Simulated assay, not measured.
Amino acid sequence: MGKGARKKDPKKDRKPKVRDVFVARPFEGLAAEPELIAMREFVPSGTARLTLADDAERKITLGTVLPMAAAAFVRSDGEVFIGMQVQTRSSDISRDLGRSLRWALDAKPGDVLSVPDTTSEPVEGERLQDLLAADAELEVTLHEDFSWWLPEDSDASGDVAMSLERANAAIMPTERLDTGAYWVLAGEKAHLRWVWPADENRLLQALARLSAAGEIGLGDETRYAGSFRAHGLLVPVWDLDPEAHAREWAEPAKQLGERLQKALESLDGEPLNATERRSRDGLIGRQLTLR
C-alpha cells in the first residue's frame, strides 16, 4: 500500500440495511380497503379498475390471481393487470403492490413480473396510498372462470393454459352482496364473509350487542360462525343455508349491515352491559388470525 493510501472502511462499503417493519393494516386510509382485503384473501376470480391519483384515465386492472400467480403483466392488447394473490410478500403488502404497479406503468405488451419486489430498500411514494386516489372505491366484478386473463377471441397455450385450467378448477361459487361482503359456496356449506373497516374492539362490541339482543343472524338456518383477522381488520363469518341462492341473502345482509352500523354508533353513548360483555367474551373465543 502506497504512502498516504487510506484503508477502506468496511462499514462504509456495506449496503444500507432494509427496515422490514411489519405493517398490520397495509390498506388503511384507502376507501377501497375492504375490497382490497377481500380480493387478497378469499375472492376467487375477480377484477376491479384502479384509479390512479395522477392519471384517472389510465386503465389499470386489479385481479385476484394472474397466470402463474404473477405479480403483474401487460396483456398482448396493452391492458395492464396487477395481481393480488401472489406467492411472496414483504412486511408491507401495500408497498409490494405499489412496486408492481409502478413496474407495470412502464412495461410493454407481453412483459410479465413474476414476483413482487420484496427486497429493495423502502423509499417514499411507492405504497398504494401514494399512487391511488384515496377516496376511490373498488367496483369488483366477479367471474366464473379466469378467461379474463386473455384478450377477446384468444386461446391459451403452454404454461398459461395449464395455469388457467388449475385456477378454474379451484373456483368456489362466489357472489358479492355488499361492500366487502361475499357469499361463498364451499362444498356443502355456504358462508357470508364480511370485511368491516372498523376498529376491531368496537366491532366486537357491536357484534356482542347484536348477539345479546338475538339480532346477530340473517334469519332461519343461519348462525354467526366466528371471525378472522386479515390485514388489520376483523372479518365476521356467518354460516348460511347452502340450499338458498346467493341473491336470497342480499336483503338479510343489508338489514344486518344496518343493525351492525347502528350498534357501532350506539357504543359512543352506551357502554356494554353485563350480558353484552359476556357475549363479547364468547365472540373473542371464536377467532382465527391470518397474516
Rank of each mutant, 00 (worst) to 15 (best):
263 A>E: 06
238 W>P: 00
236 P>H: 06
256 L>Q: 11
242 P>A: 00
195 V>W: 12
218 L>W: 05
233 L>A: 06
263 A>H: 07
240 L>R: 05
251 E>I: 04
231 H>W: 07
207 L>M: 15
230 A>M: 06
253 A>E: 12
194 W>M: 03
191 H>Y: 15
224 Y>D: 06
258 E>N: 14
268 D>A: 14
232 G>C: 02
266 S>K: 11
192 L>C: 04
204 L>S: 11
191 H>D: 06
188 E>Q: 15
273 N>H: 13
210 L>D: 01
246 A>W: 08
191 H>T: 10
224 Y>N: 03
195 V>M: 12
192 L>R: 01
212 A>V: 02
230 A>S: 08
202 R>Q: 15
262 K>Q: 14
236 P>D: 00
232 G>K: 04
190 A>V: 01
253 A>G: 11
252 P>K: 02
192 L>H: 09
187 G>W: 01
224 Y>W: 13
205 Q>K: 10
228 F>E: 03
277 R>W: 07
227 S>W: 12
203 L>K: 08
251 E>Y: 10
218 L>G: 02
200 E>G: 08
229 R>N: 07
243 E>Y: 04
191 H>N: 10
242 P>W: 03
230 A>T: 02
264 L>M: 07
194 W>L: 03
255 Q>M: 15
276 E>Y: 08
198 A>H: 08
235 V>A: 00
187 G>R: 02
245 H>I: 10
211 S>D: 15
196 W>T: 11
185 L>W: 02
188 E>W: 14
246 A>Y: 09
276 E>G: 07
228 F>H: 09
235 V>K: 03
230 A>V: 06
253 A>Y: 05
215 E>K: 05
276 E>I: 01
269 G>D: 10
250 A>E: 13
233 L>V: 12
244 A>R: 12
211 S>Q: 12
265 E>V: 09
236 P>N: 06
213 A>K: 09
271 P>Q: 14
190 A>M: 02
264 L>H: 04
259 R>Y: 10
233 L>Q: 08
221 E>C: 11
206 A>T: 07
219 G>C: 01
237 V>F: 00
213 A>C: 06
189 K>C: 10
190 A>S: 13
278 R>S: 12
214 G>I: 00
274 A>S: 11
184 V>Q: 13
257 G>F: 04
262 K>S: 13
207 L>Y: 12
187 G>V: 01
216 I>V: 09
243 E>V: 05
198 A>C: 09
238 W>K: 01
189 K>L: 09
247 R>N: 10
196 W>I: 08
274 A>I: 11
219 G>D: 00
191 H>A: 09
261 Q>C: 14
275 T>P: 07
279 S>Q: 09
188 E>D: 15
201 N>F: 13
253 A>K: 06
203 L>T: 00
